[in-house]
Amino acid sequence: MNIFRLAGDLFHLISIFILIHKMTTSKSCSGISFKSQALYLLVYVTRYLDLFWTFALYNSTMKIIFIGSSAYVLHLMTGPFKPTHDPNIDTFKVRYLIGGAAILALLFPYKWTPAEVLWTFSIWLESVAILPQLFMVQRTGAAETITTHYIFALGAYRALYIPNWIYRYLTSTFWDPLSIIAGVIQTVLYSDFFYIYYTKVLQGRKFELP
């Protein structure tokens, strides 16, 4: 474990807290993409199957938190706050994201075992899971400030894994090329959002797309 990964996981927890806080205080899930949230549950369920045969206090606790919280978010979006969910602006074709991740998982897993193929699927799916959310923000042309903080924290989580991978490569010649490639792609997908977030939201202005 290193400070970068710890900070990354902390940002991940913060993003989930911001999301749930926003939904429960505003009693609304407006501006949040259900498709992205559903993809995240799929990412966690397919990646954390090793909960059943490995145990590490930190990792197992975090895995349970991520699976539980994303299931809870989906419950909120399909239950109490369903009236505030507008599926007409959540139109990204997730079948291509799932299909692409599945193909890559079948072609290039570390090992052709069910657990490893699912893990690889999850890594690739996570790299694109934010696209429906970013696409929705693009379509509406703006986003609530709290939503931009959520997206920023979510992007910062995996961005911080990059120095973690560099650190681990330099200190222990460990490296996980699949996670690194997918993690870099994931972070690049946030880059225009990060730019607008930095130039707009952090200057105290509303998040509006040019």
Binding site: D9, H12, R47, D50, T54, M62, P109, D176
Partner: peptide, 10 residues
């Protein structure tokens, strides 16, 4: 540790 022998990152 070789890849694929269990993943220790989230």
């Amino acid at each position: 540790k070789k890849d694929g022998e269990g993943h220790d990152e989230l």
